[in-house]
Write a protein that binds this DNA or RNA. Structure first.
Lengths: 255, 255
DNA sequence: ATACACCTTTACGTTACGTTAAGGTCAACA
DNA sequence: TGTTGACCTTAACGTAACGTAAAGGTGTAT
């Protein structure tokens, strides 16, 4: 004949303390109290508790719930709409926080590299950050989060020696590219050697090589004015296109 | 020679109580204490407070901030990343809450209409809700949010009389459609009259008529099995297709 | 009779302060 | 020199929604 606190709690999947607390704040009073002082709840209280838990699940405060359960349905709607507005504001706020935290993380990561390995003069991080910012979404969509995360991680964890080697290889790529462009043929042996060197260069940051990704990157070199400008300036005008064509042939992705 | 609590508070844009609280929890201790017991802060404390407020703005707990400010930069990064994960989870949770609250609001609005205007027997809201759920995104993308919002609003604000008229017109559409199908020709006068009646029927909920939207709806009738089933059952098999063809001719959208 | 599961009330802890309240301090002004 | 007003101090309660003891009574099965 009626549920005790623990029984009701088990029924509703909450703690007995919560039931007592709801009694304390007059949100849910027991149907009656036994001679020994035990709280006893009936069907009506079970129903009311269901209502309470429903609104609670929506994130409403207990005070509001209390008012709601004793108010006409009109106020109920108004309260829900007000609550929705609050939630929307909260979401915006959380999004702002996320943006700021991510910005800070990027900044700190840059700082660490700079202090830990001073020689890198911030260039690496800048590259990673820029890459991420500009192509993050795109590359992630194409090749998955893991690929790019691993690439960035590898990049940051390079030792100074590795970084020097990597830079030297990069210069070799540029030199060979210049020589290859003299042949005028992206399929020439020299041009293909350039593509091969470029592949080795990539392997410093990619943990496994992928022809499609390599070809995709080559296309990006041309599509992105920053990259185009870089190659055009470091080698000669048209270098980005030439490198792209050489790589497309090298990877066999030239349709 | 040093800031008092109020001076520091004004400098940082926080309350004196906050400063004292930070002292109490050993987050920010004064540089020294005057003979009279006044807390006095120097430049180092100002700097530390800046740091504290920065992390606080990111939503970090004071305990975490305290640990951060006395830990190497490595932990700092880890803490920020952990915090970011938390924020992402919170955003998901808030989004879930929003979705549920909105669902509940829709439900309650339906209920109100039902109690306010009992005759509507819930059909309207069900239609609106179903329409929204199934085609909301699609229609919104095509015709803009305003169109559909106004349609739903108009729908809900119909008087019982209007609703009755609307239903009668709906029945007329069905009757005429049945007769028109006997001609076998969607271009026939009767079929075109059906399309015209359907247009009038639509005008009950659309605040301005749009040929393209009308044609789009007609195509949807065939694409959506629920609508197809409805017309096929209310009229006869093939009714949805026939109505669509008639409307496409009526609107001149039959390619 | 006793063990065990359950009940009760009381009350502190949680977060980051806001808000009195009671009383001391400092600089300026009459 | 006294007083005023702005400031300082500590202490303590209030906030939301319970979790978690602690101390002691109840119900029932063995």
């Amino acid at each position: 004949m009626g549920y005790t606190v623990r029984q009701l709690a088990r029924l509703a999947g909450i703690s007995p303390r919560t039931i007592r607390y709801y009694d304390e704040i007059d949100l849910l009073k027991p149907a009656r109290v036994s001679a020994a002082g035990y709280r006893l709840y009936g069907q009506a209280e079970v129903d009311r508790l269901q209502q309470i838990l429903f609104y609670r699940a929506l994130g409403l405060e207990l005070k509001k719930i209390k008012r709601l359960l004793s108010a006409p349905s009109f106020d109920e709607l108004a309260a829900l709409k007000e609550h929705r507005t609050k939630l929307l504001a909260k979401r915006r706020q959380v999004e702002l926080l996320i943006a700021n935290v991510e910005k800070t993380i990027a900044l700190k990561e840059g700082k660490i590299t700079m202090t830990d390995q001073e020689k890198f003069e911030g260039f690496k991080e800048e590259l990673v950050a820029e890459n991420e910012e500009k192509y993050g979404a795109e590359i992630r969509a194409k090749y998955g989060d893991e690929t790019i995360d691993r690439a960035n991680a590898a990049f940051r964890n390079m030792t100074a020696q590795q970084y020097a080697d990597w830079q030297q290889l990069g210069n070799e790529v540029l030199d060979t590219l210049k020589a290859a462009m003299a042949t005028g043929d992206p399929a020439s042996a020299l041009a293909q050697k350039t593509a091969e060197l470029h592949r080795q260069w990539l392997n410093f940051s990619w943990d496994h090589y992928d022809k499609a990704a390599h070809a995709g990157l080559a296309r990006m070199y041309v599509a992105d004015p920053r990259f185009t400008a870089y190659y055009d300036e470091q080698v000669q005008p048209g270098a980005a296109e030439f490198l792209r064509d050489a790589i497309l042939i090298y990877t066999g992705m030239n349709q």
